[in-house]
């Protein structure tokens, strides 16, 4: 039974530079990043954790900006997913990632949720990490030792666990413009139509060659293991083939086999495994269809 902790004892800080934020977080182990806080505040109310300082990152311009230099997009780690969903360039180049971004909670939550929060919160069921991973997103991380860039796939290491060191924050994400005839898709299973945590999530990115065969494939699953799971067997089954028929059956089987789910209040092992296969197959189909349409347009 959670009691609200002494909220009156908590301090709020709103740095305007990355350096200030890193300094605040690095100097107090009980300081917490306060970005969207859509998970953090309910957790605090339930009695865990008990931060001393909440470090608001949303007044740091760089963390909220969305830009592109023509070949690479830079998306602030705290940029609201509402802004991401409203960004024409991202929506055109990464439709699946943008869909995943739009699935995080209600319109109210969309004003606050972000890729950085979604990834650093390290929930196995988070919606955007599978899509970030199939798109080879990179996370730029700032900390007391300066900045470093890592693959988004390397940030979460387990439920609630990340590779971020003390005082480190994700500053922004880098996403390379996808090659021609490339598209992604994301599907998730929730019992309702909205407002649920994914029971299973599946992201796929497909690149087609001129004949419509798969030239490159990336498939990643959420909520079926402690961290996002890639499905190399499914990716291998696709390469060089048309994304249809038996090949898709192989994708489904490989995806189901790649899972390592748990039984919990939101789903069972058997259900998650079966549906992971279904969603992976469907996500591949949608991504391939989008990629083919791009080919038609060009």
């Amino acid at each position: 039974m959670g009691y609200d902790l002494m909220l009156s004892a908590m301090r709020y800080a709103s740095p305007t530079t990355v350096a200030e934020a890193v300094d605040l977080l690095g100097s107090d182990p009980a300081a917490r990043v306060y970005a969207g806080a859509t998970d953090l505040i309910p957790q605090i109310r339930a009695g865990r954790p008990e931060p001393t300082v909440m470090v608001d990152l949303k007044r740091i311009d760089r963390l909220c900006a969305i830009g592109s230099n023509g070949s690479t997009y830079t998306v602030g780690a705290a940029a609201p997913t509402a802004d991401i969903c409203g960004h024409d360039g991202l929506a055109a180049d990464f439709p699946g990632l943008v869909e995943a971004s739009g699935l995080i909670g209600s319109d109210q939550i969309q004003s606050r949720s972000s890729w950085g929060g979604n990834l650093a919160n390290a929930s196995p069921a988070a919606d955007t990490p599978p899509s970030l991973i199939v798109n080879d997103a990179r996370a730029v991380i700032a900390g007391p030792g300066g900045e470093r860039t890592v693959a988004a796939a390397d940030v979460a290491t387990g439920p609630g666990q990340t590779s971020l060191g003390p005082g480190e924050i994700i500053v922004e994400f880098e996403l390379d413009q996808p090659p021609a005839r490339t598209a992604d898709a994301y599907l998730r299973l929730i019992p309702r139509t909205e407002m649920d945590i994914a029971v299973v999530g599946a992201a796929a990115r497909i690149t087609l060659d001129g004949d419509g065969n798969v030239a490159a494939a990336a498939i990643a699953l959420g909520a079926v293991a402690p961290t996002v799971v890639r499905v190399p067997d499914a990716e291998a089954a696709l390469i060089g083939n048309l994304p249809s028929g038996e090949v898709l059956g192989a994708v489904e089987a490989a995806a189901a086999a790649a899972t390592n789910p748990i039984d919990d209040k939101r789903g069972t092992v058997a259900y998650r495994r079966q549906v992971a296969g279904v969603l992976a197959r469907r996500a591949v189909s949608i991504a391939a269809e989008r990629a083919a349409q791009q080919g038609d347009q060009s």
Binding site: G36, A37, I41, P42, M54, D56, K58, P80, S111
Partner: peptide
């Protein structure tokens, strides 16, 4: 921006 005010810390409103 539409928000749930239960998920916003009051000092942020400054």
């Amino acid at each position: 921006r539409l928000l749930c005010s239960c998920l916003v810390l009051a000092p942020e409103a400054d």
